[in-house]
């Protein structure tokens, strides 16, 4: 567990939870990133503007961090652009089919004690862990 960063993980998690709570309190909506983004992509008459505002904040968040701390976040990608395309397609299609991702099911759905969200979270955690096991230890061999 040499890479474990408990303090920053706990603080970051609190901020994420606070963000989702603020959204429900002020706007009455679930902070599900995949749902919000697909709503920007496929605009509706009544629910586009707030989604754009949320996504703008989400994208500016890391820049606010850079402005305050003076350093950029570490972003290390191990997947090639081609593999990233395959992964992106699966995530885009899968989150729509499964009605949510880590935020909507994992942070908000579980907080509402939704049976669907508990199950979805267990399933995507499991397939992600198996995928990493296969690519890292069976095929990749590192």
């Amino acid at each position: 567990m040499e890479y474990f960063t408990p303090v920053s993980a706990a603080i970051g998690g609190l901020l994420i939870g606070l963000a989702a709570t603020l959204m429900l309190w002020t706007n009455g909506r679930i902070t599900g990133i995949s749902g919000i983004v697909s709503g920007v992509l496929i605009p509706s008459k009544t629910d586009t503007l707030w989604r754009v505002c949320f996504v703008a904040g989400l994208i500016l968040g890391p820049l606010a961090y850079i402005a305050v701390s003076g350093q950029g976040p570490t972003i290390v990608t191990q997947a090639s652009p081609l593999l990233s395309i395959v992964a992106g397609l699966a995530v885009g299609f899968g989150t729509r089919l499964g009605s949510g991702c880590t935020s909507g099911h994992g942070i908000c759905g579980i907080a509402r004690f939704s049976k669907r969200s508990f199950l979805a979270t267990a399933v995507f955690m499991l397939t992600a862990i198996v995928t990493v096991y296969v690519t890292r230890h069976l095929v990749g061999g590192s």
Partner: peptide, 14 residues
């Protein structure tokens, strides 16, 4: 959908 999402998540870490 959740299963497919997890596969993509595991492939890229995103």
């Amino acid at each position: 959908g959740a299963a497919l999402f997890g596969i993509g998540w595991g492939l890229a870490g995103l």
